[in-house]
């Protein structure tokens, strides 16, 4: 019967994965059911918007700028082989708005805010602060989870716009000032090839990734057990799972939308 052990553990892993998916979706449904019932905690939502959005600006600007810059550099080397340097601008702009802007922004925010959500809710769970909410007749899903999810869905598209813009500027600086592409052509090709839908699809992706990173962060935090070690585990798992899901859903959404 030894040959059956690996199959068994594979089966168990699948079942665990299924169970976890179910729990995550259940948390999502619970959270959104609270949208229908007062009190709507605007103050908490704004506080989370500040945390997820405003406080991530620096990271997002740095990420966007360097991504745009390096992308310009790389594509310039490629395109110059067959004399198509004029396409650098539009390549950078399309790559950023469709892919790199939303994906990298959301991965960075997952590392910053998704992990913090898991750690904060996890700490609240293991120190009985979540129980204290229940005792005081305040639903923790409504009080803790929903504001974080809403704030992330709202703020990640905003951050992505910042990343797109800064990234294109970074590409412009490298392309025009360092590599000597004509400024007018750089901009004209962007306008020629890029459509509004490239930007808006990217923003839809960002909103969706915002949902993923906050939902996973909250889920891992909310169901933390096992003291400080448990909080550490929840935080790591949240970042890993959210990042993988973002990349996987990026493929799915791209396949559906473009």
């Amino acid at each position: 019967m030894r040959w059956i052990a690996p199959i068994e553990s594979l089966g168990r892993a699948c079942l665990n994965g299924l169970a976890e998916t179910g729990e995550i979706l259940l948390l999502l449904v619970q959270a959104f059911l609270w949208l229908l019932r007062p009190p709507w905690r605007l103050r908490l939502i704004f506080k989370q918007m500040e945390f997820v959005g405003i406080k991530s600006i620096n990271v997002v600007i740095l990420t966007g700028a360097f991504t745009g810059a390096v992308f310009a550099l790389q594509s310039y080397h490629g395109f110059s082989l067959f004399g198509a340097e004029s396409l650098v601008g539009s390549t950078v702009a399309l790559a950023l708005t469709r892919e790199l802007g939303p994906v990298l922004t959301c991965l960075m925010v997952t590392g910053r805010a998704g992990s913090a959500m898991a750690a904060e809710l996890g700490t609240m769970r293991v120190t009985e602060q979540v129980d204290a909410l229940y005792v005081m007749a305040v639903n923790p899903v409504q009080y803790l989870v929903l504001p974080r999810i809403l704030a992330s869905i709202i703020m990640l598209p905003v951050l992505t716009i910042v990343a797109d813009y800064v990234g294109i500027v970074g590409g412009y600086i490298v392309g025009v000032h360092l590599l000597g592409i004509n400024a007018g052509i750089f901009v004209a090709k962007i306008i020629e090839y890029m459509e509004i839908s490239d930007i808006s699809m990217g923003l839809i992706k960002a909103a969706f990734f915002g949902l993923i990173l906050s939902l996973v962060g909250c889920y891992k935090g909310f169901y933390t057990h096992g003291g400080a070690e448990g909080v550490g585990r929840a935080t790591t798992e949240a970042v890993v799972l959210a990042s993988v899901l973002i990349l996987a859903f990026d493929y799915v959404l791209t396949a559906i939308m473009f």
């Binding site: 904060e120 700490t123 120190t127 009985e128 602060q129 129980d131 204290a132 229940y134 005792v135 007749a137």
Partner: peptide, 23 residues
Amino acid sequence: DRELNQVRKSFGMLFQDAALFDS
């Protein structure tokens, strides 16, 4: 949940480790 919340409103509880909201 809703009925339970109604009941809980008539309770106060001190947790063993206080469970203060640290934020």
